[in-house]
Amino acid sequence: MSEHGVRIQLDRVTKQYPRQPEPAVDNVSLDIPAGELVVFVGPSGCGKTTTMKMINRLIEPTSGEITIGGENVLALEPNELRTRIGYVIQQIGLFPHMTVRDNIAVVPRLLGWDKARITRRVDELLELVGLDPSAFRDRLPKQLSGGQQQRVGVARALAADPPVMLMDEPFGATDPITRDKLQNEFLRLQKELRKTIIFVTHDFDEAVKLGDRIAVLAEQSHVAQYDTPGRILAAPANDYVEGFVGSAAAIKQLGLMHVGMLTGLAELSATSGLPTVRSRENARDALDIMLRAGTSHVVVLDEQGDPRGVIGFEDIAGLLREEVSRVGQDA
C-alpha cells in the first residue's frame, strides 16, 4: 500500500543570505540512503533547519545540487515538489478551522483525488497513527490533546504517501512522557513504511533513539560526523562531537543494544530471587534493573516469558568493550 523511500543527495549545498558575511549553510554534502531515518542534530542556529528546508525548497539554495531519487529538486516546480514530500513542523501547524479529516485531506485535494478515495485514505491513516477514525475524523484540532495533534500532523504528512518526509523537531513541544510514546510509535511506523526521513532535533538522545544515522552538524551546517548512533557514541570524530554526545556515552550506547544480542548466556542455575528482563529490552534497561535490585545478575526472558539465561555486569561491560573495539577496527 505504501511507497518506500528513495535516496536523497545533497551535493555542495550552500545558502548565502544577502548582506550577511558568512553563509548560513556552507558547502554541505550528504548522502541519505533510501528508507533510512537520518537525524540532523546540532545546536540552535547551526543551520540544520535551513539545510532541511532547502530540500523542499522552502528556502532556495544559493548553490549546490539536491536530488531526490535521482531527480534534481531545483528543476522541479516547487509546489509540485512539496506535494511529494511529507512535512511536519514543531508547531504541528494543524489548521484550527478545519476538521481532522480536512487537515489530512489537504494534499490529496491538491492532487485532485476523488472524495471516496480521500475518505478511505483518511480513515486508513488515522488507524495507522492509532486514532479511531469514527471518533476523530470530524473533530477540530482544539478538541485533541497535544499527542493526538502530533499524530494527526504525521498522518497529514503521510497523506499522499510521499517517499520522503522532513520532520523539524516534531516532538519538541510535547511533555517527556508523551514524547517517549510518540517516538516509540513513530519508530514502529517507520519500520513498516520505510520512508526516507530527515529528522531535525537538538536533542542528542532523541537522535540516538530514532536515527538509523546521525549527522552531527556544527556551525554553518558543517558535517562534524555522519554515522550510525553506535559508532558516533563509540568513536566520536572530534571534540565537538564528543561535546555533543555529552557524558555517559557508554550508558547511551547500552541503550542501543538488545539484551537478546548477548551471546553465550550463562547457564541457568540458582536464578531464584534474581530480577528479570525481556530479551527485546536493551542493555541499559538490564543494567538499570540490576542496580535497582542490588544484584549483579539478571535473568533474561524470551518473548514467551521463559527464562533463557543469566547475564551480569561483566557481560554488559564486555559487550561494550567488544563494540568499541569493533567500531575502532572499522574506522
Binding site: 523542499n56 522552502l58 516547487p78 509546489n79 509540485e80 515538489l81 512539496r82 506535494t83 514530500i85 512535512y87 513542523i89 514543531q90 508547531q91 504541528i92 501547524g93 494543524l94 489548521f95 484550527p96 489537504v106 494534499v107 491538491l110 497529514r156 522532513l166
Partner: peptide
C-alpha cells in the same frame, strides 16, 4: 507556522 505548514504541503 500555519502558513509555513501550508507552503510545505505545496499550497
Amino acid at each position: 507556522s500555519l502558513v509555513e505548514a501550508a507552503r510545505g504541503m505545496g499550497m
